[in-house]
Computed example of a mutant assay.
Amino acid sequence: MDETTRRAFSIANIQDGSNRLELHIGGAKQSQYLADILGYLHNAYHQGQRLLIDAPHGCAWLRENSERPLLLIAGGTGFSYIQSILRYSLNHYPERDVYLYWGGCYQEHLYFDDEVTALSQEYEHLTYIPVVEKASAGWFGKIGQVINVVYDNFQSLEDMDIYLCGSRDMVCGARYCFVRYRKAVISRVISDALM
């Protein structure tokens, strides 16, 4: 918002020739910081101001030279990064097996659940597993922490490419657990940790 107030966000959309940049900004709890960001963006948009962004950094892009199954794991708004990997993969490699696990504290935190469910019905190679920590009446998905559900569902992750996005604690814990106990290959565990 100025030289001293910067925030990193994962890009949620794929390059499609438009000038559109999709970010997922949310918060499970109300915070003044979040309110300031959303207020700033709202005002800038309505005043026709241009926003200056710093180009993407890091190395968390989809590795296209692999035919291994994809394991995509998102916590909360970490789905933004996972969504871009998912959409690119479905567009360019629709025959590649994809397992998507998306976790949130409550069902409403899975804000694109209907869209992802529809994609999983459209693409036979996409398996979608929604996970909530606190289930409401009528919830038929998995209950618990998303990383624990993945851990329980796979005895070995040795032959998979794994993409993670969520809190730093979630990402670090998953990397450690998957490599140590589920034979994941560390060089094939790609992550974008939220700050």
Rank of each mutant, 00 (worst) to 15 (best):
L51P: 03
P69D: 04
Y93L: 08
L110M: 08
L100M: 04
Y93T: 08
Y93G: 01
W102V: 07
A55G: 05
S84E: 05
G48I: 04
L41D: 06
Q49H: 14
C59F: 11
G48M: 03
L71Y: 10
R50K: 13
T77I: 15
L71M: 13
Q83P: 00
Y106F: 13
I37Q: 13
S66V: 06
H42S: 11
G48A: 01
Q107P: 02
I85P: 02
Y45I: 04
E64M: 11
D97L: 11
I53W: 11
D36K: 13
W61S: 07
H109N: 12
L72G: 03
A74T: 06
L86H: 12
D36A: 12
C59R: 14
R96C: 07
E95F: 06
R50L: 09
I82Y: 06
L86A: 02
D97Q: 13
I73T: 06
A55W: 15
I53N: 04
Y88S: 03
A55Y: 15
E64K: 15
Q49V: 01
L51D: 03
D97P: 10
Y40R: 02
R87F: 08
Y93P: 04
H42D: 14
H57Q: 13
Y99K: 03
S84H: 12
D97W: 07
S80W: 06
L71T: 08
E67T: 15
H57D: 08
H92Q: 13
Q47I: 00
